[in-house]
Amino acid sequence: MAMNRRAQDYGADPLAVRDTNHYQSEYIHGFVEKWDELIDWDARARSEGDFFIRQLKEQGARKVLDVATGTGFHSLQLLRAGFEVTSADGSPTMLAKAFDNARRRDFILRTIHADWRWLNRDVHDFYDAVICLGNSFTHLHNDNDRRKALAEFYATLRHDGILILDQRNYDAILDHRIEPTHNYYYCGDNVRATPEYVDETLARFRYEFPGEHVFHLNMFPLRKGYVRQLLREVGFQKVTTYGDFQETYHDTEPDFFIHVAEKSYVAEGEEE
C-alpha cells in the first residue's frame, strides 16, 4: 500500500508517467506528513475568506460531499460553519491524516475511501453539493476518466445540487503568460511549488520543503474552456467560473479558477 512506501517511484522516465492510477504511489506517507507545511491552514483561510461557505449557502446547500478531502482543510471549515459533511478521498494516507487533523480540533470526520470513477459504488447517499478542491481534478490523466468522474459527481447530487470544482490556471502556464504562485492554495513558509516540466498533456510539479525534502506530482494541465465544456456535456445546466474567488478577473491572470456548476434544469430559452 502507498502508506508503507518510503519514496516516490516514477521509474526510469518520470515524464512518461501519465496515468490516473499513479496517484496512489504519489501520496506516500512522507509527502502527506509534509502536506500541511505546504498548505498553511490559517493563511489559506484568510485567502479564501468565506467564498465557498457563501456559495453553498446561496444555493441552499446543507449536506456536502467533499470528494478531495486531502488533509481535511475544507471539510473542517464546512463543519465549523454548520454543514453536514462527508469526506472522501482516493488516498487512504490522506484520509488518515485528515481524520487525525479533525480529531485534534475536536471534530470527528465521516470518511469514505473512494475512487471518483466508481464513487457511487462506495457513496450511497445524495447531496446538495459536491466539492472537488485543491487542484485535485488535475490528477485524472485520461479524458474518459474525467468524464466518468464528473458523471459520478452528477449522479450523487440531488436534482438541484451544485458541484464546485477548482483548477490551476494552466492556460496561462501553458501559454507562458505567468509563472504560477502559491498565494491562495500553497501558503506555507519556506516551501516551493514550481512546475518542473509542462506540455499539453503533463504538468510535473516539484515540491521542496526545508531539510532538502523533495517530492513531485504528475498532473494533467486542464484548460479552463475544456473543463467548462466537460461540465456542460455531463449535464450541468449552468457553469459560473471565478478567478481567485472573483467573478471578474480579466485585468489580471488568476492563479486558480473555481467552477460552480449547477444541476438544476434550465428550460430552452431561459438565460444561462
Rank of each mutant, 00 (worst) to 15 (best):
Y242I: 11
F205W: 15
L79G: 09
P210H: 03
Y154N: 03
A102C: 10
F126W: 04
F257C: 07
R158A: 05
R46I: 14
D199T: 06
Q55V: 15
D145F: 02
F126Y: 10
R5L: 14
T156Q: 02
R206H: 06
R117S: 00
T86G: 00
F99I: 03
K263F: 02
F73S: 07
E262A: 13
H182P: 00
V260T: 08
D166E: 13
A151K: 14
Y185I: 13
V64G: 04
H176P: 00
Y226A: 12
H216R: 13
F52P: 03
F73H: 15
N4A: 09
L140M: 07
F83Q: 08
C132R: 01
D125H: 12
R62Q: 15
Y197K: 10
V234A: 07
A149Q: 01
L76F: 09
Q246C: 12
H182L: 05
A12C: 02
V191R: 10
E212S: 13
A114L: 00
N142F: 02
D175R: 14
L230V: 01
E179D: 13
A267L: 11
D244Y: 11
F257R: 08
R204D: 08
R117H: 00
R121H: 10
I258C: 14
R146S: 06
V17R: 04
I131Y: 11
T181A: 11
T201L: 01
E262D: 05
V214W: 09
F99S: 15
D145S: 03
R110A: 06
E253H: 14
S91T: 03
W118M: 05
R204C: 08
N218G: 10
F99R: 15
S264D: 00
